[in-house]
Structure formats: C-alpha cells, structure tokens
C-alpha cells in the first residue's frame, strides 16, 4: 500500500523539519485549489491561480502535482483516508454492527466533502469523461476506488464469519459502490436544512441494505 508519493503521509512518522515544511505546502496547495474549484469552478481554475492563492510560485506546484486533476484526486484520497480513520479510530465502533460502521464511513466522507459541494457535483460529471484523469478509467482513480471498496469488504467480512459467505459475496463491493454514488447524488440534490434528509436516507437505506446482505448469506 505504501507508495512513493507524499500523499499518504497522514500516518505519523518522525518527520524532519524539511518534510514537515513540504507537507504544509502540499496541504496549502490542495486547500487553495479546492477553494478555487468550489468558487470559480474546476474547468476555469488554472494552476497559476492555484499557485497565487497558495502564495507560491507556479513552478513549485509542479514539484508536488502534475495537474490540477492530480490535486483533486489527492483530495479524494485524503477524504477516503479520513473516512477510514473515522471508523478505525473510533473505539465505540470496534464491536458495533456493520450498519454502524458503514454509516460512520459514508457520513464522514460527506462531512469531508461538504465545504466543496459545488465542486463535487462538477467532479462527478467530469469523472464520466473517459479521457479525464479524474475519471473512472484513470489508473490512480481506480486504485483509490479499490482501496475504498477493499475497506468496505473488510468491514463486511469482519462482521460475518467466512463460512457464511455465499455466491453473492463477490457482489458486495460493486453493489456498495453503486449505493455510494446514489447517496452522493441524493446528498448533492438534498435541499433540506443541514442536508438532514440525506442522514435519514442513509439511516434507513443501510437498514435495508445490510439486512439484504445478511439474509442473502443465510
């Protein structure tokens, strides 16, 4: 899982000042870029504008990211890391049923995405373009999805013993991915105060989804 890139430095390591500094700049770039994506739109935002907003030279941006798509992807990687950590670092969830873990997972993703809602909507459409780096066909995006779904599978497996798995099991990650996209769409279009309808939807759909899963396994 460890890659050369700096992106997965959320794990603490005794970093030197230099590395710390690098990480701070990287974070600044992502934050500035996301703010611009949200306010000015993804398409119209240039790396130059990102650099200006982050208060660095445009060349410096390229030391960290090749394209703005890369920046967006690394934001999504952080989002997934954050959500996985939200489930794993919560002691109350250690023995909680599957639904609870999935609820926390998806909810912390949505919370992470919330400040950039407009951009998320645009990115979802952008991602449908096969040529895009953000798209489902880009290698890095696929890797991220695999990592995310591997975690979901892990959660499913740890809450149901192996011998109870059945022919449907291989469907779980696929089904969950579609479900997740559905929740994301629901969330994007949710105009209720504090997007409370999404919470209600998540709460109830997980009830049904998980009971399907466990009944299918019997």
């Amino acid at each position: 899982m460890v890659t050369k890139s700096t992106k997965k430095s959320t794990k603490k390591r005794p970093a030197g000042k230099r590395a710390q500094n690098k990480e701070a700049i990287r974070k600044r770039i992502v934050k500035s870029a996301l703010n611009l994506f949200q306010t000015k739109g993804f398409q119209t935002t240039t790396t130059k504008a990102i650099a200006r907003k982050a208060g660095i030279a445009e060349g410096t941006v390229f030391n960290y990211f090749r394209t703005k798509e890369d920046i967006a992807l690394s934001f999504f990687e952080e989002e997934v890391d954050h959500a996985i950590a939200a489930v794993r670092d919560n002691p109350r969830l250690r023995k909680a049923p599957l639904e609870e873990k999935l609820f926390t997972l998806v909810h912390s993703q949505l919370e992470y995405l919330a400040p950039y809602e407009r951009f998320i909507g645009a990115a979802l459409i952008h991602a449908l373009n096969p040529a895009s780096h953000l798209g489902a066909f880009s290698h890095r995006a696929q890797q991220l999805r695999h990592r995310y779904l591997a975690f979901v599978t892990e959660l499913v497996e740890e809450s149901s013993p192996k011998q109870q798995q059945n022919a449907l099991s291989w469907l779980v990650p696929e089904a969950f991915w579609i479900y997740y996209l559905g929740v994301l769409l629901f969330w994007l279009y949710d105009s209720s105060e504090g997007k409370e309808h999404t919470l209600a939807f998540l709460d109830r759909s997980l009830h049904v989804g998980v009971s399907f899963l466990t009944n299918g396994r019997r």
Binding site: A96, F103, H107, L199, D203, R204
Partner: peptide, 22 residues
C-alpha cells in the same frame, strides 16, 4: 417506529449541542 442508528443519534446530538452525547 424503527429507531435511528446510534451513529445517527450521535450525529444529531453533535450537530445540535456541539458535542457527542458521550
């Protein structure tokens, strides 16, 4: 009525009172 998931209960309390019930 069917109850809310405990995770949702926590989210609701946190949103409303600023902290999780625990």
């Amino acid at each position: 009525a069917p109850g809310m998931h405990p995770s949702l209960v926590r989210v609701q309390v946190k949103r409303s009172l600023g902290h999780e019930p625990e």
